[in-house]
């Protein structure tokens, strides 16, 4: 929520003070009114103070002009998180009927310099909306994601473009590429889910394919939570048990001495579901499930002891023979 490095001092290259700018002589700057007893008072540089004094003046005059437009650029550069500046800039762009392609180029540069800022991404989205042109958007977000494969804003923008302009076709290939680069990229797994859910949906056939896909990744790295979460996400609307392969898959890994907490958790989920569905051998299933909870609590996932002990108690009280409600 606060994405700026307060240790960075702003650069100040060849800045011209307003007193040396004849084109601004007619406008009276409006100082910020912090009241008589200011708090959290920022020691603004002279440049920052002046630019914003003039920015307030153009807003007060409701001026939408070329000079006002260039002033918003200066103001945005000094503080890209100032949403008032971006908002007013958009008003001017509309009023002056500016070339939005140019604006897109400009905002690309700003985003590259400030990739984790809400305002600049929102600005881009509005411009794309106005242009009704997404030609460069996938390429652009890809470029940002190359630097930081989990940038939330970039993914948000990408999803919006895909949904708004139906760009679903190539996306699974892109996700596949990202997962081959880093199978722990949870944003890419999430994108996979997003794409499938909004296109083919998780039909029986797709589920089988996706189970295999995620299980191949799990075999490579059984301690990778992302792939486990995705595998379970695939079956979200169904029962793990409808696809009997899941428990067998888990047993196979378990028998190879793999003790990933996510594997054991998945086995517990399978057993819990069997209990829910009233499958035979209830006591044995319950015992297996609670034993696995204890294994996690005492050995493989001791950090989450409280949680696993709670799950064990819940299972025992819900499905145990000795529960008071049953007698």
């Amino acid at each position: 929520m606060s994405e700026c490095n307060v240790d960075d001092a702003a650069s100040n290259e060849a800045w011209v003070p307003f007193k040396d700018r004849p084109e601004w002589r007619d406008l009276k700057p409006i100082p910020q009114d912090d009241g008589p007893d200011p708090v959290v008072q920022i020691a603004y540089s002279e440049q920052f103070r002046e630019v914003y004094d003039y920015f307030r003046a153009i807003i007060a005059a409701d001026e939408k002009s070329e000079r006002a437009l260039s002033l918003t650029k200066e103001a945005a550069e000094l503080n890209p998180a100032n949403y008032s500046v971006w908002n007013y800039r958009r008003n001017i762009l509309q009023e002056l009927n500016k070339d939005l392609k140019e604006e897109l180029k400009y905002i690309s540069q700003v985003i590259e310099d400030n990739p984790k800022n809400y305002q600049v991404w929102h600005h881009r989205r509005v411009i794309v909306e106005w242009l009704e042109d997404v030609t460069d958007e996938l390429k652009f977000t890809e470029k940002i994601l190359k630097e930081d494969a989990k940038n939330y804003h970039a993914w948000q923008h990408r999803q919006w473009c895909i949904q708004q302009f139906s760009l679903w076709d190539q996306e699974l290939d892109y996700v596949d590429r990202l997962l081959k680069e880093d199978l722990r990229n949870n944003s890419a797994w999430n994108q996979r889910h997003f794409i499938i859910k909004n296109t083919t949906g998780y039909t029986d056939e797709i589920i089988k394919k996706e189970l295999k896909y995620s299980q191949d990744f799990i075999r490579k790295a059984p301690n990778n939570e992302s792939a486990w979460n995705y595998m379970k996400g695939v079956l979200q609307e169904r029962k793990l048990f409808d696809f009997p392969g899941v428990l067998e898959f888990c047993h196979e890994l378990y028998s190879k001495q793999i003790r990933s907490p996510f594997l054991i958790a998945c086995m517990i989920d399978c057993y819990e579901e069997m209990l829910e569905l009233g499958k035979p051998k209830k006591e044995e299933t319950l015992q297996k499930a609670t034993q696995l909870c204890n294994e996690l609590a005492e050995e493989h996932d001791t950090l989450r002891r409280e949680y696993w002990q709670y799950i064990a108690r819940s299972l025992a009280s819900k499905y145990g023979a000795d529960v008071s409600g049953d007698s």
């Binding site: 920022i42 020691a43 540089s45």
Partner: peptide, 10 residues
């Protein structure tokens, strides 16, 4: 706050 907080001016 120092001028490095200009980025939190909003």
């Amino acid at each position: 706050l120092s001028s490095s907080y200009e980025c939190l001016d909003s």
